Computed example of a mutant assay.
Amino acid sequence: MQRQAIILGIESSCDESAAAVYDGERGLIAHALHSQVALHADYGGVVPELASRDHIRKLTPLIERVLAEAGQPALTGIAYTRGPGLVGALLVGASIAAGLGMSRGLPVLGVHHMEGHLLSPLLEPAPPAFPFVALLVSGGHTLLVRVDGVGRYTPLGQSLDDAVGEAFDKSAKMLGLGYPGGPALARLAESGCADAHDFPRPMVRRPGLDFSFSGLKTAVMLAIKAAPDTTAARADIAASFEQAVADTLVAKCARALDQTGIGRLVVAGGVGANRRLRAALESRAARDGFDLYFPRAEFCTDNAAMIALVGWLRRTDMAPGIAPAEAVARWPLAELTPPAAVS
């Protein structure tokens, strides 16, 4: 397949159903997403069985919608999220992709969800050049990765316990906030004082690029127990927590850039949309002189645009024939290899 390949992307790794169409000549030409936030709100978190059933209901209409918006293009391949994620949810997208591939005679490719996030800034009008350092911060992952090209990833550091998104959600729950916790905590923090509590900046003074957020989460719990039960007190805790996270992530990113000698930083994943983190990174970039790249907010969270993009970038890996519906809960990023060369 050449540059004019047109790829349908399907995302169903957790609690968002999404579909998109990427054209190698025109770029992203259609995308749509359905969030399950309302479905899981009463439970305070994602219920895997409910997520899977909702994907069954929503994915096919979303696919039909994006194909119509794209003008019913002549697809040349289908990409879906193979993992990591919730196996039941992944299997819905995998089964639909395999069925469409068989019925339309199209090759199908399972895509690594984290690779989608790492390369999502390539959807922007001014994408970063390789190599770059990527900070991937989401509900399930906190990673620093050196990216030398598609499929050429060197992990530099990761969280040794909770992902930063989990720390946000758990701290939000302790503060009595609703689901999803991260955005709710960020809203509360807007009215708080970030200097009210001297929370730890975990592992910043230790060498290396790994993270740990369990101690910070414990500090938040202790502060909540000691503080008066008022909105102002909770807002101060939220703002101080958010600032501690931002300071920690910025320090580790600066260290990674210094150690690699690379002057480009990409920030991807849902937590990458956090305003305090973005402001802190922008301030550090201006001070240190490195280039900073974010995907637009709608492509920070799970989406099919990034899956369709990776499908296009890996179009030479797509093999003809009936594809199996594969899903994997865990899939180390280091296992990925560059796409096959164009013959």
Rank of each mutant, 00 (worst) to 15 (best):
Ala20Gly: 06
Ser120Gly: 10
Gly176His: 13
Gly176Leu: 10
Phe241Val: 03
Ala186Asp: 08
Met174Lys: 09
Ile6Ser: 07
Arg255Tyr: 04
Ala305Phe: 04
Leu33Arg: 12
Arg82Leu: 14
Ala238Asn: 01
Gly311Lys: 11
His141Gln: 12
Ser35Met: 02
Glu11Tyr: 02
Ala186His: 00
Leu28Pro: 06
Ile322Asp: 05
Val137Asp: 00
Ser12Gly: 08
Ala235Asn: 03
Ala89Ser: 15
Glu166Trp: 03
Ala163Trp: 00
Gln158Trp: 04
Gly263Lys: 14
Ser212Ile: 03
Ala219Ser: 15
Val266Thr: 14
Tyr179Asp: 03
Met203Asn: 01
Met174Asp: 07
Pro131Asn: 11
Ala30Phe: 06
Gly27Pro: 02
Met114Gly: 01
Pro202Met: 02
Ala163Thr: 01
Asp210Leu: 02
Phe241Tyr: 04
Ala30Asn: 09
Ile10Leu: 14
His141Cys: 11
Val21Asn: 02
Val271Arg: 00
Pro332Gln: 09
Lys225Val: 04
Leu257Asn: 10
Ile63Met: 12
Ala340His: 11
Glu25Val: 13
Arg255Met: 12
Glu326Lys: 13
Gln72Cys: 05
Phe294Pro: 00
Val220Ile: 12
Met102Ile: 04
His113Val: 10
Lys58His: 14
Ala126Thr: 14
Ile29Tyr: 07
Val47Asn: 10
Ser138Gly: 12
Arg3Phe: 11
Leu90Ile: 12
Glu25Cys: 11
Arg330Gln: 13
Lys173His: 12
Leu333Gly: 04
Ala273Trp: 01
Pro61Glu: 04
Asp161Glu: 05
Thr248Phe: 04
His141Ile: 06
Gln4Glu: 15
Gln4Ala: 15
Phe130Pro: 12
Ala184Arg: 13
Leu281Ile: 10
Ala268Gly: 07
Val133Trp: 03
Glu326Ala: 12
Leu135Ser: 05
Phe290Met: 10
Pro200Ser: 14
Val310Trp: 02
